[in-house]
Write a protein that binds this DNA or RNA. Structure first.
Lengths: 338, 338
DNA sequence: CTGAAAGCGCTTACAG
DNA sequence: CTGAAAGCGCTTACAG
């Protein structure tokens, strides 16, 4: 593969000049520029990004460590992150933690070794030593969706509190009184916050959330199924189940179906995170939608600002309830979809 | 951040010795090894992968350019690719082409500039100049799922021909006679092959595939909806629709639902690519499942072999029909799921 | 077993 | 406007 020296030779200039035209440095004569460009063209020269990175100490690359690629929410987040990053001239390398702290650390380490310019992460847990070290080590980091208390970096996330309040009101209005939740890991912020918001909303209606109605999940499908099975085995099973993410909803759907329950009639089901498939499930699933695209963009902009030496603020965007039919037939909601 | 020189100083050895212990070179005394390891520990040293890559001319990184991250099929493929690559000591950088040749080229170029050791791609089109150039340029490449005729590199894919035959037989057995297909872009191999297999299978039953029954899609949801709308506007609409991927199926579901049609009764619907959500749609969707995880693993192994100077063969794995209820109620199929 | 030194392909002050 | 040279952080023959 042709190197910068070959281009210099072909154009009859020094490598310094070649470098200058490639980097749009102003002081290069038109004649030299033209010759270099021509040489680049005929040799099919492509600069070696590895060498450039070593020299400039920047890779123009962002790392994104997400909790689970199989989760459509994160996949959509990844897409918007890459798009926003590309617009800013950054590439992004995605690491999938699969909800495992060890895998998360593996990716963070690899990314750090590659000297990415900044890191976007939705932490799988309460904070591994490596995570803390990376933050202290001066690597620009911003948390997306989930964050780690005690690590002082910008956080970009959606606040589901109000939407969860709307959901509980919706369920209450439909006559549901025994509301249960399938939570994510308590070590994650989204895991604990959603339960707290749910509990608070119930209290607002004079309802309590018994321990037996808090299923412990891990944000993946199988755990949603297990938690649901456990609910159904209770002497007094819940009449409404709220799953804290879309994958656990999938598991809940499996379990409910297996028990022959009519969702929306025998039992209500709602999800955190809205995805295209929820319009087509049987029945369509009522869900809380996050402004995923905006979150991705805001996270990238915050990270870019951090890299540029700024001190971007945290961003919290509202989530909203999208009523469909899985909780029962209510009055047509203005915000609902077909 | 501590560099190799700091470690050498701390351990009282040369950088060469530090490098040797880090790379598990045999000729290092136990004493030196211990001191270096201790120094690495106390300084929290992490080798700079950029510098190492420049020197060794290998990045231990694979590039994966997929057609669309929002497609669960590719997302699952990406996951298995990363897993298999990690087991072999490679990282993978994913590029999402969004079914756009220009975006695909952008990612291929970026990946090449980064000097990835090998490239895995499911091409969005018939072959851009860059793609051809990269292949000729000596970069180890293997195609996954889709391939480009004329570029002689290993191809790892599933053959859906037999499964499509099974599907057509299934539809025929259910009394369907007006079968339509929503195809992917003709420039992609999966776009054209699935139509051809479908047409051949129809012929086997004495049926023809009229041009009006071949909807032109682009593998994304909106096109599935448009093609379906067009089918329904026909004087004689089809009584069965086969969508060539899961995203277009989503669009077809939208359109069918909007027209108030009962899927499985008024009209049959089947999909290429099986995903977890199809079990829970209304009705559950009959689909052709690819051995996605195996494809990802096989692709990585082929690419690794290529990088190591081998000449791995192409791999073709069978796809299989998973009968559910979207084509109508047939005899319970042994291979069907709940 | 160990170290001094060259070199990977670039960029960028420094002179001119 | 241009070039010679240093240097980014490693690895690896080459001597010893």
């Amino acid at each position: 593969m042709a190197g910068i020296k070959d281009v210099a030779a072909e154009a009859g200039v020094s490598v310094a000049t070649v470098s200058r035209v490639l980097n749009a440095h102003p002081s290069v004569s038109e004649a030299a520029r033209a010759r270099v460009l021509a040489a680049v063209e005929t040799l099919g020269y492509r600069p070696n990004a590895v060498a450039r990175s070593l020299r400039t100490d920047q890779t123009r690359t962002l790392g994104l460590v997400i909790s689970d690629v199989l989760n459509p929410y994160f996949t959509e987040l990844a897409r918007s992150v890459e798009e926003a990053a590309r617009a800013l001239g950054y590439s992004v390398i995605i690491g999938n933690a699969d909800e495992r702290p060890d895998l998360q650390d593996h990716h963070v380490r690899t990314l750090l070794d590659r000297r990415i310019d900044g890191l976007l992460v939705s932490p799988t847990d309460g904070g591994t030593p490596l995570m803390l070290e990376a933050a202290r080590g001066g690597t620009p980091i911003v948390f997306v969706d989930r964050w780690i208390p005690g690590i002082d970096v910008p956080v970009v996330r959606a606040d589901g509190r109000a939407a969860i309040g709307d959901l509980v009101a919706h369920l209450y209005g439909l006559g549901r009184r025994r509301l249960a939740i399938i939570a994510g890991p308590a070590a994650t912020t989204t895991g604990s916050e959603r339960v707290e918001a749910f509990r608070a909303a119930l209290a607002g209606h004079g309802l309590v959330l018994p321990d037996a109605y808090v299923g412990q999940g891990d944000f993946q499908a199988a755990s949603g199924r297990r938690a649901t099975e456990r609910f159904l085995a209770l002497p007094e099973p819940p009449d409404a189940v709220f799953a804290a993410d879309n994958l656990m909803t999938l598991g809940a759907l499996d379990a409910l179906r297996a028990h022959g329950l009519r969702i929306g009639a025998d039992i209500a089901l709602a999800a955190f995170d809205d995805i295209p498939w929820f319009v087509h499930t049987d029945p369509p699933v009522t869900a809380i939608a996050q402004p995923t695209g905006e979150l991705g963009r805001a996270a990238v902009h915050a990270l870019a600002a951090l890299i540029d030496g700024g001190t971007p603020p945290s961003v919290t965007l509202p989530a909203r309830l999208v009523v469909r039919r899985s909780c029962g037939e209510g009055a047509p909601n203005p915000r609902s979809e077909q």
